[in-house]
């Protein structure tokens, strides 16, 4: 209990409740960020900018990624990107990454508009 209160106080003090990262964020940082982080030196970001333009180059800010697409590309690879095996990124970890990258999608109600 004391730990919970402490953690809550910490979150309140940093104003971080709303910004608490999804568990997929850490997995993304571990497995994907070397190629897909924003800025120079990241081959995935660089190539996506060439192919799709600057607004769709950085995976973490894209509004159009859905979980099924992410699962497919990670397991099958695409263009220069090699596939990742379930021994490296488990299905559960991949679901979390997909959830994290899919979080910017508009809610279904909004999309129907």
């Amino acid at each position: 209990m004391r730990h919970a209160i402490h953690a809550l106080a910490l979150l309140l003090s940093t104003g971080a409740i709303a910004a608490e990262p999804l568990p997929g964020k850490a997995l993304f940082d571990r497995w994907c960020a070397e190629c897909h982080a924003p800025g120079h030196g990241h081959p995935g970001t660089q190539q996506l900018e060439r192919l799709r333009g600057a607004s769709l180059a950085v995976l973490e800010t894209r509004p159009d990624l859905n979980a099924a697409l992410i699962r497919y590309v990670v397991r099958s690879g695409q263009n220069a990107m090699p596939p990742y095996r379930p021994s490296e990124i488990s299905d559960a970890a991949l679901d979390q990454i997909a959830q994290y990258l899919g979080r910017n999608q508009p809610a279904p109600g909004k999309r129907r508009r």
Partner: peptide, 24 residues
């Protein structure tokens, strides 16, 4: 970039050259 690799910092930056013609 090589200033990092020549002191043993692992990166993937160099992998960009596989996109030279597209398709990887």
């Amino acid at each position: 970039h090589r200033a990092m690799t020549m002191r043993g910092v692992p990166r993937l930056t160099e992998y960009s050259f596989v996109n030279w013609v597209g398709g990887g």
